[in-house]
Design a protein around this nucleic acid. Structure first.
Lengths: 217, 217
DNA sequence: TGCAATCTTGCAGTCTGTGCAATAAAATCG
DNA sequence: CGATTTTATTGCACAGACTGCAAGATTGCA
């Protein structure tokens, strides 16, 4: 067996080509948007630059926006997940830890990331689109919280559990989004996305605490 | 001058027709989705049912989804807005009040609303779309909070103000969304959307308080 | 009644996205 | 290595969303 490490070793020719093509499309999409503007960034043009047929484009991405926006965040393969569902500490900070880990893992290709950030800032319409794709991540969070609550409060009804899980997930997600926006606005290499997420959680907590008299239940 | 009440009196023929056509499209869209399913709900079909040309459809709605989803929530004409910007009480509950008022105003056509709720529940893809349209409302909230913060803390830099305003808006928005989802899931006439919003804010505050030790700043 | 403003509609055209089948390339196996 | 199976690329045809334009119909108004 090949080493089970996470280093991308020992990929077949096919796999390697696939990764390369995907990367070529991602780069081409950004390049075309940058050069021709978002409106003129057609699939035909992107495909031409990426040197593939337009039909092949849709074998890699389900829509033009996905190619421009890149991969959606996901809990997939996040090692903190299993810890979180069995942990019994405060739930929001726990969830923060999960997301922070995911954020730091996201830094696969800093170059593309920076360009994407610039493009997102330039065309707010893309941010709207991102909202939609990121909705899946939100659902993943809710599902994760549900799993934990089921273990922590086995006597709750399913409806109650789902309802509470959504409250937790939505709240956490709001803080994550705040961090994300701050990161988009500030091309500030000093603070990583993970750090911004951490800040958002604590500042969010302070905000809520200052708005509602502390009434720990 | 005509009475400044909100009753739709004294509209010209043209205006009345316009309203009627818009309503016809809204109804037709939901009907077609319900009868033929979301995938088969084409603009052509909706237009046929609404008895207008497909071209006219796009004179009323910029996209098919807008017609299915109906009007986007907005702060437009919300009387609580002016109160909020000058109020100096806790900010989150104040924002809650603004949104609750808006929620209650939303009950224009209960029949359409109920059907839309059912359709949204049946096709999760629509919920994703809604996220996108509702993003504008989020920005309105952020803008509103910015106005208030500028008055309340004139010494803050613009960047700080904008950053904090977004934190407030996103947090409030998370609670609103929780209420919205609960409302979608529970066709429970007992609790209005406004009440659900109110609950979401208090429960959200409790959640945060229980997760972070009370440290009122 | 007649002119001006506004609406509706058809038409032509662009672009996204999909199913299908042929072709090409890579993996696998004897 | 050569044959076979699996998977990827591509072209083609087509459905459907959406837009600009200009002609024709309606409504508002003097």
């Amino acid at each position: 067996m090949a080493p089970a490490s996470d280093a991308p070793e020992e990929l077949g020719l096919r796999e390697r080509k696939r990764v390369a093509t995907r990367q070529a499309i991602l780069r081409a999409a950004l390049q075309v948007v940058r050069e021709r503007g978002l409106d003129n960034a057609t699939v035909d043009e992107i495909s031409r630059v990426a040197d593939i047929s337009p039909r092949t484009f849709f074998n890699y991405f389900p829509s033009k926006e996905e190619a421009i926006l890149g991969e959606t965040p996901s809990l997939e393969g996040n090692p903190e997940v299993e810890w979180f569902v069995t942990d019994r500490g405060a739930i929001l900070p726990g969830l923060a830890r999960v997301v922070i880990d995911g954020s730091n893992r996201l830094l696969s290709d800093p170059e593309l990331l920076a360009e994407r950030r610039a493009v997102t800032k330039l065309y707010p319409a893309l941010g709207v689109r991102r909202m939609a794709t990121v909705h899946n991540f939100e659902n993943e969070l809710a599902e994760l919280v549900t799993r934990r609550l089921r273990g922590e409060f086995p006597d709750m009804t399913d409806a109650e559990t789902a309802d509470r899980a959504r409250l937790v997930a939505l709240t956490a997600f709001a803080f994550v989004r705040h961090a994300w926006f701050a990161w988009i606005d500030h091309p500030d290499a000093n603070r990583s996305l993970g750090q911004l997420v951490e800040e958002a959680f604590t500042r969010g907590a302070e905000l809520v605490a200052s708005s509602y008299p502390a009434q720990v239940g």
